[in-house]
Nucleic acid binder design. Structure first.
Lengths: 237, 237
DNA sequence: GATGGCAGTTGACTCAGATCAAACGGGGCG
DNA sequence: CGCCCCGTTTGATCTGAGTCAACTGCCATC
């Protein structure tokens, strides 16, 4: 846990140039609104493994991921961990009704976020129903993903879980960075295990099995798909 | 699967008298808006085991549960089922972004819903940001519950799952009907199993074990808590 | 008050994935 | 270069929950 590198660009950023704008909440804002919006958020960088916010902590800000990957997780009192998602550029974090975060978030690699003070953001949204609609849309999309993940956790085998994870992760990266059969995996095996409800050993063995079956190739920092069709068959089944 | 009993009250209902109003989306509407809202929805009754809507079906309506219990579930192609939630009076169903339902819903016992044609509802919401805010609030609450359920599915033992389920179900019923240590369970053992990512046999055995340990008592159509503190200890651990 | 059916329970056995333990391997550093 | 560290892989064994099968008990129907 290194210390944070605060405020990389002390309000010198320009939202209209922002690379994740079209994926993000801000997609719903027009040119004038974006200008106002700019004064609201500021860019903050986090070092690998740094915590952006913790479960049960009072929510003081919302976050828009600009660059990097985060793991979002919940801990049981005895230390068991369930990763409830990975956040990528464009993801919007921090909404809740209790006033406290309901999961923790930390940076996997270096991360840059656009941070909005909660109160100012709430005020800004007040008169912008289209922004609210956009946030609602994102929440509903996440809800749908959460339900899909419940099916995976409750009813799928280890091999199905891993295949599904790799394919879904690939899809997300394609949306952001364009098509490729090579899939970087910035998170550790332990992270993948805690996301899929498995142990690290099972994840590792399953990777090896998929490679032995010539479905994937394990490369440093990721995998490469050799046979997408068979991977999809495993995931669908 | 019996045939449906349509439109119990062909628009003779009065929203201002509605028993679930304070729990529901409609809580955000003022007296005038409720009057307009009345013309939008109509009450529809469903017989036990009837399907309200199916996954992948085009969304033509939204639903507000007025009475009864529904199971919300997703099926894998080979028939494995994951119940993603149970809907109780006050729950609002049908929101999605794809235009298709992303899970199926059927009645467990007799169910009455308030059904809103999608288009009319969308038009109504257009100029009512507070209603949108209320819907967003409900979505965020559900998202939080979904994440809690992921932890349960991915990281908890059978006994912890069952104890947690019974306690959570009790909490929901208390909110609606007031405190009681007796907890009706209208859903079948199979439903509970498919909700918790277990088999029916494991659910049954775990119930028996909890009863043998004098934590619960199994009664027809439900259970009764004998030792809430120990149940909570099991669920928390 | 027999009969059939279905939800739930119980028992015996199996197995997928967990646990425990050891080995591997690549990158950083003295 | 050699050593260590740590994330990962592999192997051996164990076990919690799944599977398969039989049984119970409660209605519903005749």
């Amino acid at each position: 846990m290194k210390h944070s590198l605060v405020a990389v660009e002390p309000n010198g950023h320009i939202c209209s140039d922002c690379s994740v704008r079209k994926f993000s909440v801000c997609a719903s804002l027009d040119a004038n609104e974006v200008r106002d919006f700019e004064h609201l958020g500021r860019h903050v960088a986090f070092a690998p493994c740094e915590t952006i916010f913790s479960e049960e902590e009072l929510t003081s800000s919302f976050y828009n991921v600009l660059d990097g990957v985060m793991r979002l997780y919940k801990l049981l009192p005895d230390g068991r961990r369930q990763i409830v998602g990975f956040a990528l550029p464009g993801d919007f974090l921090g909404m809740n009704i209790s006033g406290r975060h309901n999961f923790s978030a930390d940076a996997i690699g270096p991360v840059i976020v656009c941070q909005f003070p909660k109160a100012a953001f709430a005020r800004f949204i007040e008169e912008k129903p289209h922004l609210l609609r956009r946030i609602n849309e994102l929440a509903i999309r996440e809800l749908s993903q959460a339900r899909d993940h419940m099916v995976l956790l409750g009813r799928r085998s280890a091999e199905e879980k891993v295949a599904t994870f790799l394919l879904c992760w690939r899809e997300r990266l394609i949306l952001l960075y364009g098509p490729s059969n090579t899939v970087p995996l910035p998170m550790s095996r332990q992270d993948i295990a805690d996301f899929l409800g498995l142990t690290i050993e099972t994840v590792s063995r399953t990777f090896t099995k998929l490679e032995r079956d010539r479905i994937i190739e394990i490369i440093p920092g990721g995998i490469s798909f050799l046979d997408l069709a068979r991977a999809e068959a495993l995931a669908a089944a």
